[in-house]
């Protein structure tokens, strides 16, 4: 799988698709470097587009061989995340494929 911005041929999810961010807290049990903010975990969002394919930062942080992972822009409604906020406001987050599942 070639890496870089715009390299999305291996993308599992398509624009418009509903996805759920895995509701996992691996940093509770091991020292990890994660790029999935805690507030997005377990939330359902919509794929805006696949942005590219990049070496997994969870590996890079420990200087070990890093598998290529597809990175997406995923859009979430703000109010359900915080229990307040203005209807219609949204959050747009870069998330790696291995953190996403079909919803």
């Amino acid at each position: 799988m070639s890496t870089g911005a715009g390299q999305v041929s291996a993308a599992r999810f398509a624009a418009g698709q509903s996805v759920r961010v895995k509701d996992a807290k691996p940093e509770r049990v091991a020292r990890m470097h994660l790029r999935t903010p805690h507030y997005a975990r377990g939330r359902i969002g919509r794929i805006v587009r696949a942005l590219g394919t990049f070496p997994n930062p969870e590996d890079i942080a420990f200087n070990r061989p890093a598998e290529p992972r597809v990175l997406y822009h995923v859009l979430f409604d703000q109010p359900p995340v915080w229990g307040d906020g203005e209807a219609g406001d949204t959050l747009l987050i870069e998330l790696f494929e291995h953190w996403l599942e079909e919803a």
Partner: peptide, 12 residues
């Protein structure tokens, strides 16, 4: 006008 907050979490 809606606000879209962009959390810059990864490679871009």
């Amino acid at each position: 006008m809606q606000v879209r907050v962009v959390d810059s979490t990864a490679d871009f």
